[in-house]
Each structure stands twice: as structure tokens, then as C-alpha cells.
């Protein structure tokens, strides 16, 4: 599986435009909120955590339709399923690469965006702490949705329609971890969701990949 992750990382880095597009979308969408609600620091600070979370969620969705789609179209998916790895391990490896090339970069630029949106300095570590499991959950659920919608005629439309409702709980607890006076509970909930998604989402994605290959 390590070899598969390394190969997929290499491919993702050669297609760096996907990561750059997600990061640019993240920054631009966050900036649009600032323009829309005005420059009042109090208003911006009140919505900053939610805005960063929503923008991260939408930005992470952007490269998902190519996560399995390119392999499906060029025949690589068959080779991956015949690599000797179980389908869920293939799905897990691709999910890891999605997080490393999209979730992690989003995490790294979340702090500057939060500063721009006037999130109080003391809240920024909490925001980043919530985004660590949050972006992983987004990658796991998004990968499962990408696998389920693989081969569908309108996969690019179907995939966000599957993913977005699934990530609402993570969004609620993620934003609450930053705004609540007691952040521990929402962070524990995020951790619990990650613990559930970590084995279940790749299993679901693996089943969907096999179904798509049929």
C-alpha cells in the first residue's frame, strides 16, 4: 500500500493544478464572505470559524471527481483492483493521497484566512485543531461518495449531493469547537466521527469501486 500511496502522490504532484485550484478556491471563497458581510471586525469574527469550515469543505470537494474518475476512464482502476490489495486498501490509499494533497494544504493556509476574517488569535489553534480531524473526515466521506458516484452520467453533480449532507455533523461540531466556551466536547465528537469513518468509509468505497468495475 505504501508503494501505491507513493505512486499516487507522484501523480498528484505532477497534476499540481488540482491542489492549487482547491487552495485558490478556499482563499477566494473566504474573501468573498468578507466582501459580502462588510469589514466590521465583530461581524467577521463571529462568522470566521464557520466560513473557514464551509470553504474548506467546498474546496476539498473540487478534486474528488478525478480521485477515481481518471483511473476509471484509463483502465487503471482494473489494475488497482487486481493489484493484490483488497479494494478497501486501494480506496484508503487514494483517500490518504487526497488528504495529503488537499486537506493538509488547506489546513496550512487556514490560519492566514482566519486572521484575515478577524478570528481572535486565541481561537486560531482551536480552529486548526478542529480542522485536523475535520479535513480527514471530509477526505474519507468524499472519497466514499466519489466511489459511489463513479461511472454515473452526472458524477460531478451527484458526488457533492452525496457528500455534503454526510459532513453536516462534522461541520457543526467543527465550528462549535472554535466558538464554544467548552471546546473539548465538540473535539471529542469530531474524534469519534473520524474513528468511525476511518474503517467504514474505505470499506464502503471499496465495495463501490468493485461495483463500478463490473
Amino acid at each position: 500500500m505504501i508503494a501505491l500511496i507513493a505512486r499516487e502522490l507522484k501523480l498528484s504532484l505532477r497534476h499540481g493544478a488540482d491542489t492549487v485550484a482547491a487552495l485558490l478556491f478556499f482563499i477566494i471563497a473566504g474573501t468573498l464572505f468578507a466582501f459580502a458581510v462588510g469589514p466590521s471586525p465583530a461581524v467577521l469574527a463571529g462568522i470566521a470559524a464557520g466560513v473557514v469550515w464551509v470553504c474548506a469543505l467546498l474546496a476539498a470537494l473540487l478534486p474528488l471527481d478525478r480521485l477515481f474518475g481518471a483511473d476509471f476512464e484509463d483502465g487503471t482502476l482494473d489494475l488497482l483492483l487486481l493489484s493484490g490489495l483488497p479494494a478497501y486498501e486501494v480506496a484508503f490509499a487514494k483517500t490518504m493521497v487526497h488528504w495529503l494533497t488537499t486537506g493538509l494544504p488547506l489546513l496550512l493556509i487556514a490560519a492566514p484566512l482566519a486572521v484575515m476574517l478577524r478570528l481572535p488569535d486565541e481561537k486560531i489553534p482551536l480552529l486548526l485543531l478542529s480542522l485536523v480531524p475535520g479535513t480527514m473526515i471530509l477526505s474519507l466521506l468524499g472519497s466514499m461518495a466519489a466511489a459511489v458516484s463513479l461511472g454515473a452520467r452526472r458524477a460531478a453533480v451527484l458526488m457533492p449531493l452525496i457528500t455534503l449532507p454526510l459532513v453536516i455533523p462534522a461541520l457543526i461540531f467543527g465550528a462549535a469547537a472554535v466558538t464554544s466556551a467548552h471546546p473539548a466536547a465538540p473535539l471529542y465528537m469530531l474524534g469519534a466521527m473520524l474513528a468511525a469513518a476511518l474503517p467504514l468509509a474505505p470499506l464502503g468505497a471499496g465495495i463501490a469501486l468493485r461495483a463500478a468495475a463490473e
Partner: peptide, 17 residues
């Protein structure tokens, strides 16, 4: 799968590699 070498209709060649 570990016994099989597969060559399908598609070449599974990645343009970037």
C-alpha cells in the same frame, strides 16, 4: 488477483508519468 496480469481494452497508461 495476485496470480493475474491483466491487459484490458484500455492501456492504463498515465500521461504524466
Amino acid at each position: 488477483a495476485a496470480r493475474i496480469a491483466w491487459l484490458g481494452h484500455l492501456d492504463a497508461v498515465k500521461p504524466a508519468l
